[in-house]
Design a protein around this nucleic acid. Structure first.
Lengths: 206, 206
DNA sequence: CGACGCTTTGACAAACTTCAATCCCCGTGG
DNA sequence: CCACGGGGATTGAAGTTTGTCAAAGCGTCG
């Protein structure tokens, strides 16, 4: 069920290579032909695009163990970049989408597609809320993915979070401060967030 | 490639029934077990969920010829309702997801899943923009789906549009008025929109 | 120590929502 | 045929939220 479990089977059906990317390095670019899958071995990855006027949108974050790079179309619809220094396993699998759309799909890839769909829907749900709710939802999302019992280590910058949530850095910062002042979270260091009252967070995004 | 073309093949692999739903009637409810596909014969359908505080979110609209009801999970993550009096073809296909996740998937269903993913991603993209841009993007999206040369007949109310765009009815109305005053669109009747300067609209969402 | 990058805070401007009133379209009944 | 009524759509004024711009704080690394 978790994205991590998918990875076990897929690499065996093709060849795969591990590569290192340092912070902000580009893994692939929007518009390039798709056809491989990527697994985060360590670090974190973001998928993003920049609009003509310079605004940047982040489609999703991928943490350790998660798989990215699966596309609905033949070309990448986002660029992928390392959020911090990262190791990425590149899965050159003959079972990857574009090559075999017409011949049936292994169940893992189908499940992965389902994950991506759910991710995008949840993202849209977040973006329809207020700033406070978006930030709360983001923290819960990260906590759930890390399987964390109340503490999250965020690999990404405030700017990354802002671009993911469709807000400005300042607003993200202010909302975190608000939640901190209400004792809903604690922020020992800027990238480490302690979820003090998960119920209050859940209430915000319900 | 268009959702419409998918429908030709799928019904043949199972049984199907056409049903009529009048305006606002529920076709299925969030949380119910999924496992069928639905095709809009006439009218229009919206998928939505309501939050605890009463706010409503619309996931997507489905117009004539489009297929909905495909889910990433075993239960419907949205409710589906008729936007206006509609006819819907219910496709009870043995090839539908939940039943055969593990045995491979026909290419049409894969393509459909890809469409849903793209839809959700585009929706998220819209929701990250300003009100003016969201409304412009919405109009372009509808025009593209109808294959219209510059004129759109919107089946849904302003409230529906607002809930889709994460705005209030008033803001949607004001943005339409703005676009009208700038001669970017014309609004002969409240549900009929003429796209006068498509370039200006495209510039807004670029 | 000092410089640089990221984060936070403050003050103000712009965008969006809220609440209330009015308008408009359309169907219904007199 | 026209008056009436009702739901949706628009508009206005005021309030709240979020963005913008500028400055200050904090941490890290040379």
């Amino acid at each position: 069920l978790s994205a991590g479990s998918l990875a076990l089977a897929i690499p065996n059906s093709g060849t795969s290579v591990a590569l290192g990317f340092c912070r902000n390095a580009e893994i692939y670019r929007e518009g390039e032909p798709a056809g491989q899958l990527y697994k985060v071995i360590s670090g974190a990855v973001r998928t993003c695009r920049v609009l003509i006027d310079g605004r940047r949108q982040i489609g999703s974050f991928y943490l350790q163990g998660e798989i990215f790079g699966l596309e609905a179309e033949k070309e990448h619809s986002f660029s992928a970049e390392a959020v911090v220094d990262s190791e990425v396993l590149i899965i050159k699998s003959p079972t990857v989408p574009c090559e075999r759309w017409r011949t049936g799909m292994p169940s893992q890839v189908w499940a992965l597609m389902g994950h991506e769909l759910k991710r995008a829907q949840d993202h849209a749900r977040l973006l329809a809320m207020t700033a406070r709710e978006r930030v709360a939802g983001f923290l819960l999302e990260m906590a759930e993915r890390i399987q964390s019992s109340g503490e999250v280590e965020l690999p990404m910058s405030r700017q990354d979070i802002a671009d993911y949530l469709g807000l400005t850095v300042e607003t993200v910062s202010r909302m975190l401060t608000q939640l901190k002042n209400r004792a809903v979270i604690a922020v020992p260091t800027s990238k480490r967030i302690v979820l003090r009252k998960r119920a209050a967070l859940n209430r915000l995004v319900a």
